[in-house]
């Protein structure tokens, strides 16, 4: 999916820093923590041996953590919560050896990154099932691992060949970050920052006025856009990090998020998601005056499925991948509760 001669250019440091902040520092109230806060617990014969905190380096093991018996998921979760980490990983030399061997086995000089890396997901799962590797929270344990072909199909659906995709976020002072991704011959051939468009000025709150020009310029300098997401950064953070259930439908309605062009697959996906979110909101509201617990009988998934059936729409990505990526995002948004 990535060209060997992938070109990444015109990324200003400020833009890169803003994107990094966006990805790693969730807004207050988010159920996803700061992903820079992580723990790596080194196991020796499955027992805790050494603890590394990404923020503080190697730190002593807490006294309550038993060194004389294999680590379990509950202890890892407690360790994570106690140190205020967003994620924790426990692994020993046997897991590292397994993954090392998987890397060697997966290498194919003619294959691209996806074809080499996807078999690693299976090796990770096997290591986890063998008890050599533990994650906390265990968010994606039961997610099916798609085949290389299905990921390629999904990618082709999302971004067809000789088309480009744009993701722009705007803050109070104008552009926070903007990325343009161009796909050629089945692979991402170029990723560029906003400067690649020749310096289109974006003024603070008036960013919506710049969208048509950005799209036109992207179309002339890159492959024609297939999808473009332009958003107020704080609203986009609220959507991605899930601090509010109905943030996406509302943002689309208020045009705090503009999707232009809107491809058919995304239209279907957004419609289904909106239906599911609406059902979820109804349940939340119902709970407030629901002493009999009726709200819990309101099955959000069933309602979304019913909407889907009645609309005659099918989630195209779920069909190709074997799972619904928006459902995965929803699950990730429950991070702190796991």
């Amino acid at each position: 999916m990535i060209a060997a001669d992938l070109r990444i250019d015109h990324l200003r440091p400020e833009e890169l820093a803003a994107a990094w902040r966006f990805a790693t520092e969730p807004p207050a109230g988010s159920r996803i923590g700061d992903v820079r806060r992580g723990l790596v617990l080194v196991l020796r014969e499955r027992r805790p041996a050494v603890l590394a905190d990404l923020a503080d380096g190697f730190v002593p093991l807490p006294p309550w953590l038993p060194r004389d018996r294999p680590l379990d998921a509950a202890a890892l979760r407690r360790l994570r919560r106690e140190r205020g980490a967003t994620w924790a990983l426990a692994a020993g030399a046997d897991a590292v050896r397994r993954l090392d061997e998987a890397v060697a086995a997966a290498f194919d000089p003619a294959a691209d990154l996806l074809a080499c890396a996807l078999p690693l997901a299976q090796a990770v799962r096997e290591a986890r099932l063998a008890g050599e590797l533990l994650f906390s929270p265990s968010l994606l344990d039961d997610l099916p691992i798609p085949s290389v072909a299905s990921v390629r199909s999904a990618f082709d659906l999302v971004l067809p060949d000789d088309r480009s995709a744009l993701l722009y976020a705007f803050g109070a002072h104008g552009l926070s970050f903007g990325f343009i991704v161009e796909k050629r011959q089945g692979v991402v051939a170029r990723v560029a920052g906003h400067d690649a468009l020749g310096g289109i000025a974006v003024r603070g709150a008036h960013w919506k006025a710049a969208v048509p020009r950005i799209l036109a310029e992207a179309g002339s300098r890159f492959a024609p856009p297939a999808v473009g997401v332009f958003a107020d950064e704080s609203v986009l953070r609220g959507i991605v990090f899930g601090s509010e259930g109905v943030a996406l439908p509302r943002a689309l309605a208020t045009r705090d998020v503009i999707v232009d062009p809107l491809p058919a697959w995304l239209g279907v996906l957004l419609g289904l998601d909106t239906a599911a979110k609406a059902a979820g909101t109804a349940r939340s509201l119902l709970r407030r005056f629901d002493p009999l617990g009726l709200a819990d009988r309101l099955d959000v998934g069933r309602i979304a499925g019913e909407v889907q059936r009645r609309l005659g729409a099918e989630n195209p990505l779920a069909r190709v991948l074997g799972f619904d990526p928006l459902a995965v995002l929803s699950r990730l948004q429950q991070w702190r509760e796991l």
């Binding site: 080194v42 020796r44 041996a49 050494v50 590394a52 380096g57 190697f58 692994a91 020993g92 030399a93 046997d94 897991a95 590292v96 050896r97 090392d100």
Partner: peptide, 22 residues
């Protein structure tokens, strides 16, 4: 390398985790 697996020693050093402090 014995403690955390063969690649761990080099990776820890590369990412600024002084391996000896473990």
């Amino acid at each position: 390398a014995v403690l955390a697996g063969a690649p761990a020693a080099g990776l820890a050093a590369a990412f600024g985790f002084d391996p000896a402090s473990a």
